[in-house]
Design a binder for these strands. Structure first.
Length: 542
DNA sequence: TTGCAGTCAATATC
DNA sequence: GATATTGACTGCAA
């Protein structure tokens, strides 16, 4: 009966207690073949162990970073009891192993002996090839990620940065040995971590790895070893290459991703990187401000005018939207942490909430900051919907608050940004609703009662009486990662849902947020407007 | 098809 | 030399 119920009506992960999660973990392991023989038959020796490890599974991850705060003075930042979970499961297999495997180089340290990192690499030409976790390990990390509790991505990256800088360890080394990512990716990740809820399983992986790494008491030590080894290997290679009079070998150490690849042809095929001129960027930004999602035609025109390839323009828009969105996340998170002072700014902290249906994708750090948004978003239809929808308005709004990226809000606020080399589609240039929010929203606007404020906004943007046709568009907007949209749309329900205190606190906290809201509203208006373009634009002119 | 997430890797900047 | 930025690419989902 339990099984039937569970299979037909599984609860979202976030709503499950640790015990409640157990069956799912078992199922997952079973699906993955991890439980292999006899595990399912719950009785017997497996039973205890598995359960045991199951319970301990989360510790290694949670241990340190759910409640960021404490700063890792020396090396192993957060490791209150790093070993406990692992050591306790001495006799156990599966899960415990999983926890330890993820980070090959650093992980296998239970015996305290450093061989793991040093030995293998030595044998192999490349000092480290741990990343692409080999077979089983890879599986493990994925399982870990899947089973991982919510992590405080911001806190984790913060701590990682601290540890790295404190110990003079480079991003490249860390990325390649621990995360399996390149320096640029690491930099980006550390500087702009996305909230856990916004991450896909794949995107969560680096954070789980980081957490595991932070939990490893010997993390720094091991990384230092790697560093030394790299250096040694490099010197060695250099010497040998010199003596062999071989053309310079790629000095890069780390992982040898390109094995067997013929370097010559690659060099020739390499196409030069496109570097957009400031004016071009500016033009693109303006075009973006007018229309975050340009039509193919617009893209074409833009490309022509700027003398760029259409693919470049397309890529630029994709990247810009995506990056702006991330900026927004960060700002929200930071704002959140500021506003909440001591309180955990982490999504994880919030995670305990019951809501997040479907793996809590609906709400992210942003919402977190905004509170109310979450619930709303969820209602809009599952994670997918939420995610998708969030994109739109969010990014559209983003530029507004983006310090450098989205300069001069004023300009943006202008209904008709001019001087833009970018042409507009017939349908896009039009009726850009007079962005009401900019003005009022921006100002001091005490907003004694957020509800009221939101109410206004809602009234403005939601353009009442939209009819079902609009409902579709409106819904997405509610899922805005941020902040605003939801609040704007359905003020009352939002507030009642998560309570005003949070919102109120926020409002008093910063203006930027207000701007964001305003920006989002603009975006919403714009999109709704666009959606309505097929109908009667007039009604959108407020 | 379109948009997005996640990355890579070239290049810019510190 | 390390880190930050950013155009391009891949894979996935709707």
């Amino acid at each position: 009966g339990s099984v039937s119920d569970m299979l037909s009506r599984p609860k979202p992960w976030s709503k499950l207690t640790q015990k409640g999660r157990e069956p799912f973990i078992r199922m997952q392991l079973w699906l993955n073949g991890e439980l292999g023989q006899g595990v399912l038959p719950v009785q017997g020796q497996q039973q205890g162990p598995v359960l045991h490890s199951v319970t301990s599974l989360q510790d290694p991850l949670q241990q340190g970073c759910v409640s960021s705060e404490s700063t890792p003075k020396t090396s192993a930042s957060c490791s209150p009891a790093p070993e406990s979970p692992m050591s306790s499961s001495e006799s156990v297999k599966s899960l415990t192993e999983l926890v330890q495997q993820p980070c090959p180089p650093i992980e296998t340290s239970k015996d305290g002996k450093p061989p793991e990192p040093s030995d293998p690499p030595a044998s192999d030409s490349q000092p480290t090839t741990p990343l692409p976790l080999s077979g089983h390990s890879a599986l493990s990390i994925q399982e870990l990620v899947a089973m991982s509790p919510e992590l405080d991505t911001y806190g984790i990256t913060k701590r990682v940065k601290e540890v790295l800088t404190d110990n003079n360890l480079g991003q490249r080394l860390f990325g390649e040995t621990i995360l399996g990512l390149t320096q640029g990716s690491v930099s980006d990740l550390l500087a702009r971590p996305k909230p856990w809820h916004k991450l896909s399983l794949k995107g969560r992986e680096p954070f789980v790895r980081m957490q595991l790494w932070l939990n490893d008491p010997n993390n720094v030590e091991k990384l230092m070893d790697m560093k030394r080894m790299e250096k040694k290997a490099y010197m060695k290679r250099r010497h040998s290459s010199v003596s062999d009079s071989q053309p310079c070998e790629p000095p890069s150490v780390g992982i040898d991703y390109s094995q067997g690849a013929s370097p010559q042809p690659q060099h020739q095929l390499k196409k030069p990187r496109v570097v957009l001129a400031p004016e071009e960027k500016e033009a693109l930004k303006r075009a973006y401000q007018q229309k975050p999602y340009p039509s193919p035609k617009t893209i074409e025109e833009l490309a022509t005018q700027l003398n760029l390839k259409t693919s470049t323009v397309i890529n630029w828009f994709h990247n810009y939207r995506s990056r702006i969105r991330r900026e927004l996340f960060i700002e929200e998170i930071q704002a959140g942490s500021q506003g909440q002072a001591g309180a955990s700014d982490s999504p994880s902290a919030r995670s305990s909430r019951p809501a997040p249906s479907s793996e809590g994708d609906s709400c992210d750090g942003v919402e977190a900051a905004e509170g109310p948004g979450a619930a709303d978003a969820e209602e809009s239809g599952g994670p997918a919907a939420a995610t998708k929808s969030q994109g739109g308005p969010a990014e559209a709004a983003a530029p507004e608050e983006r310090g450098e990226e989205a300069p001069r809000p004023a300009e943006k606020a202008e209904p008709t940004p001019s001087g833009t080399p970018a042409p507009l589609d017939a349908d896009e240039g039009r009726a850009r609703a007079p962005l009401p929010p900019e003005g009022p929203a921006d100002g001091p606007r005490p907003v004694p009662n957020p509800a009221a404020a939101a109410g206004e906004d809602a009234a403005t943007s939601a353009a009442p009486g939209e009819g079902p046709a609009r409902a579709r568009d409106a819904a997405p907007s509610s899922a805005l990662p941020s902040t605003s949209a939801p609040a704007a749309r359905r003020p009352s329900s939002l507030q009642s849902l998560f309570g005003l205190p949070e919102a109120a606190r926020r409002d008093s906290r910063d203006n930027p947020l207000r701007k964001k809201k305003a920006a989002n509203l603009n975006s919403i208006i714009h999109r709704l407007e666009k959606a309505a373009s097929r109908e009667e634009p007039i009604e959108w002119e407020f």
